[in-house]
Each structure stands twice: as structure tokens, then as C-alpha cells.
Simulated assay, not measured.
Amino acid sequence: MKKLLAKLLLATAALAPIVSHADAQFSVLVLAIPTRYHYEYIPVARESFERMAKLHAFDMVWTAQLQALEGDLSKYAAIVFLNTSGEELNEAQRRGVEAYIKGDGKQRGGNAVIVHRAIISKPGLWPWYEQLVGRSFKIHPMLQSAVVTKADASHPASFALPAQWIWSDEWYEFTNPHGVSIHPILKVDERSYDPTKIWPGQTATGMGADHPVAWSHTHEGARVFVSALGHNAEMYKDPNYLGHLWGGIYWAATGKGIQQP
């Protein structure tokens, strides 16, 4: 009887619907390579991203192999640069990303999600990537707690967050050498932390009232979502932060979710 029951259960399981490549809403490629200051986050973030993919029924390929950028990327609705910046890529991989974003004339190009350390690229090394990001990294003070506010409550990347959110992070300062127009989603209130608190020999001054920490824009037809948040591993266990990233991924991959007034 027990053997018969086990066979029935196996047969039922074989017929049960599962999320497969055919069922998924879209596919994303997540690039997450270990670097000097960012490596402990990888197993935590991977587990959270895998759970996110299962929960929201999308396919995800997670890799630390940058050679993935040299193959066919057209199946991905978005590439997530998770603490993996353009300066880590070789020439062939950079050309692969550019071709993916631009498309081939017959097929629309892809989209990008750029998170925390992925923003940072050596000035002048790959100007195209700097424009893709939309802002260039200048410096950051020591990690501190601060108040984050919604610059755009209609964007999916802000839905999971309260109107005011106390978060602890490295508050990157930015410049705009390429004159890129961005759409701020979140800002940090510099009155809630000390923008000048930094290591000896360095100087940080802050950016004043207009200090974005998450934004969106388009680049060569691509939807680009950028978040400067996410310095340490524990953040990838935080529901608010993960909801913020999921909202950005969802928008970048689909173009949907913006709430009209």
C-alpha cells in the first residue's frame, strides 16, 4: 500500500505545474563577481535573488563569469550589474554589452540594472558605460544612518518603501560630466548624517538638497535603473531593500508599473 501511495504521489508531482523557462515572465542575467570590498554579499544575495525569481516567476541566470557577456544576450530582458562595474570588463565584454543595449536593428536592445559598486568606473576608461549609469562616482563618506525620501512615489522601485526610511549605507557623491538627464526615485537627506565624515587625507562635501541615491533614465533606447544602495551582505536580507531592487528590475525588464496620477 505504501509503495502504491508513493507511486501515486510521484505521478501527481510529475503532473503538477512548475515555473519553467516557458512559463517565466522574462529572463535576467545577474553579474556578481567578488572584488576587494564586495565579496561577502554574494552567497546572501544569490539566495535572496533565487527566492525573488521563484516568488515572481522570472528566470534568472547568476554568474561570476564575465565571459557570459561575449555570447548571445538577446534572451535577457535585463542585465543586472550587481557590484560589478564596467571597469571589470575586457574590451570584448564591453562591446557585448553595448551591442546588447543597442540591439541589431531587427530586434530591440536590452535593459540594465546597476547596483551600488557597479556605479563606480574609472573616469574616461569607458565613457559609454558612464553614460549608461547616468552619473559618475566622486567619493563617499563613512557608512552612516540617514533618512531616505521618495523623489518619485509612482515608480515601482519605491513601492516597498515608506515615505521616509532610515537606512545605513555609503552615501555616494556623484558628478555629471556627460550631462545625462536622470529621473530621481530616492534621495538622501544630508541633514540626517554628516557628509564630511571621512577618512584622513580625503574630503567629502556632500551634494546638498539634490542628492539622488536611486534613479532611472533611458540610454540608447534602453531602460536603466540605478541604485547606489547596498553596501553590505546583511542588506540582502532586508525586505525593504529587496523590494526596492525587485521594483527596479521589474520596471527595467518590462517597462511596466509606473503609476499614473
Rank of each mutant, 00 (worst) to 15 (best):
L132Y: 07
F26H: 11
P195N: 02
Y236K: 01
W167L: 00
P239Q: 12
D189T: 01
D72M: 09
H140T: 01
Q202N: 11
A146W: 00
I185M: 04
T175K: 11
E173M: 14
A92G: 02
T205D: 09
W215D: 01
S216V: 15
I182K: 01
Y236I: 03
W167M: 00
Y129N: 06
M1E: 12
V188W: 00
T12V: 12
G110R: 05
Y39H: 15
A57M: 11
Y129E: 09
I249M: 10
G208E: 12
L245E: 03
V97Y: 05
W171Q: 01
A160Q: 08
E88I: 03
T218G: 05
G103N: 05
S27C: 09
V44L: 09
L82I: 04
A204P: 01
Q93N: 07
F159H: 14
H140E: 01
K237N: 15
V113T: 05
V180Q: 15
G124E: 10
Q144V: 00
A146Q: 00
G248Q: 07
D210V: 02
L132Q: 03
S27I: 05
E234H: 10
V19M: 10
M235T: 11
G255H: 07
S121E: 13
K237L: 14
E173T: 05
G109H: 10
Q202M: 14
I166H: 13
R46L: 13
Q131Y: 08
G255M: 08
G105Q: 10
R108T: 14
A233L: 08
I18H: 10
F225T: 02
A24K: 12
S145T: 14
L186H: 00
F159V: 04
T63V: 07
G179R: 06
